[in-house]
Design a protein around this nucleic acid. Structure first.
Lengths: 280, 280
DNA sequence: GCAAAAGTGTTAAGTGTACACCCATGC
DNA sequence: GCATGGGTGTACACTTAACACTTTTGC
């Protein structure tokens, strides 16, 4: 129970937290699909994930308000580290996941989201993780994955926040190869296409999708192929580490910031940065 | 002087502020230009603003840190009101201006921006104001307008923040008629074009610009015309209040929120909302 | 009439989309 | 061979960019 009356509580410094919407692609049966084992050149037979589904991990709240309800992973704003690093930490402490894409989404602070008059501000990041990484993850009692189209009623305004993250993903996916961050390190164009279809919610022409992706110059032929069904083998591509100059609002401030693609690196420490936002 | 040592200060709740980057279009000579008098149908001779310049108001800091230096208008985060309303208030208290466009820009929280170890988070909004409104504004000692390409060294990381706001404006202007918020209530296509040219930094084809703007269906013929030089009179347009459904992250929470164009209304209270973001 | 800017028309280049077709594989 | 999905070619619609042209005013 908060102390003081409402007007007194409104004088307190606001409660600032960091939350993260983590999006991953999974099979309809709840399993994740990936083509990411380094030893899959030419023999492995795998079932295509088909039109997958986006899943997000939620954590069960262990205190009031909204005790026992599901909420986005997050935590209090920690000092001495950047917001991006704080988002990493919040992520780490709850899900063990290392995102391949992380970007600030929005800062929510409407008074109606404050519970009991205590003002609350949430700086929300959104993250994409590859299908591989979800495999390594052991589900704990207080953490569970949900498909985005069948979320429970979440604590606070978190349903609204997830909606906004999905809206942003759908927009962003139309003018970038961001979807590659949702699949494994390596992937066929058909897999990448099925990710786009899952996010956009409608089928895409394979021929035109291929041309669009290849002409973007952000994909790289790995040289190896894979047989998916009983048809012609598909070439396996990887996301090319692109060093394009994009505007990162706080990049010039962060001395340690490097524009390295975290999925290319074995070091998943929050000191390395993502390569986000082509447009904003 | 802050109390306690560094590690103690880092335990304190972070200092959360709201700042606003206010952008307005002005003439090269420092005056603002507008075609906004309601009585300008067919006779008035006015000098075109040519390739104008973007100006922003800055306030002189009256306390440490950065005492006496120029900074973005802003204030502490107030409780009980939305972030958008807080941005309005911060704006009001320093500049008397009522923006026609207001949108959250980014939340800055890098530790390097903290002065003296006290952690600082700034939720930054950006605003566009019409040229008319700048006329009404009386410059005070501690508030001064600067052209964006000749800013002084600002307090904190505010130079960086302004850069980001300009980058966003340049992007946004390419797929919306947002520039109409920088001119007066009424404007010719040539004026609107010169705004685009000023923001983008390069000339645009008048014929193609005209067609692009008119086909967007966001402009409305006022029926009146104006003579700019010794050439054919130009039709005066206004920004059409469009009720398109766009995603506003916190819109569904705010019961009072209406998607009304504030420039169409005489009530400039922060309880009415803007119509922003076509894409994000 | 002449200059200048408003406004219209035309055309070539580029881009997105639909779809027919060939290719390589498993069965 | 036949079915299947990978991959290519191509025609058409549409958008964009360049620029010639007409219109309406002041001088």
């Amino acid at each position: 129970m908060p102390i003081g009356n409402v007007s007194e509580r409104q004088q307190l410094p606001p409660d600032v937290g960091i939350s993260v919407v983590i999006l991953a692609l999974g099979d309809p049966d709840g399993e994740v699909s990936a083509l990411d084992q380094p030893n899959c050149h030419g023999e492995a037979h795998q079932s295509n994930s088909g039109t997958g589904q986006l899943w997000i991990p939620l954590v069960k709240r262990v205190k009031q308000p909204f005790f026992g309800e599901w909420a986005l992973p997050g935590g209090k704003l920690q000092c001495g580290i950047s917001l991006e690093q704080a988002a990493f930490s919040a992520l780490d402490s709850t899900t063990d996941m290392h995102p391949r894409y992380l970007e600030q989404l929005y800062t929510f602070g409407d008074p109606s989201r404050s519970s009991g008059g205590l003002p609350m501000v949430s700086i929300v990041y959104w993250a994409l993780v590859g299908a591989t990484e979800t495999k390594q993850y052991q589900e704990a009692d207080n953490v569970q994955w949900f498909p985005v189209d069948a979320l429970p009623k979440l604590a606070f305004d978190h349903n609204n926040i997830v909606e906004y993250a999905l809206w942003r993903l759908r927009n962003r996916i139309e003018y970038s190869t961001i979807a590659a961050r949702l699949v494994g390190e390596q992937f066929t164009l058909a897999q990448l296409r099925s990710v786009h279809e899952a996010v956009l919610g409608h089928p895409l022409d394979p021929a035109n999708f291929r041309r669009r992706m290849l002409s973007s110059n952000e994909l790289e032929d790995t040289g190896s192929t894979v047989v998916q069904g009983r048809s012609r083998p598909a070439v396996i591509y990887r996301y090319r580490a692109n060093e394009q100059a994009v505007f990162r609002p706080e990049a010039s401030l962060n001395v340690n910031a490097q524009t390295t693609n975290i999925s290319e690196s074995t070091d998943n420490s929050p000191h390395t940065s993502m390569t986000p936002l082509l447009k904003e």
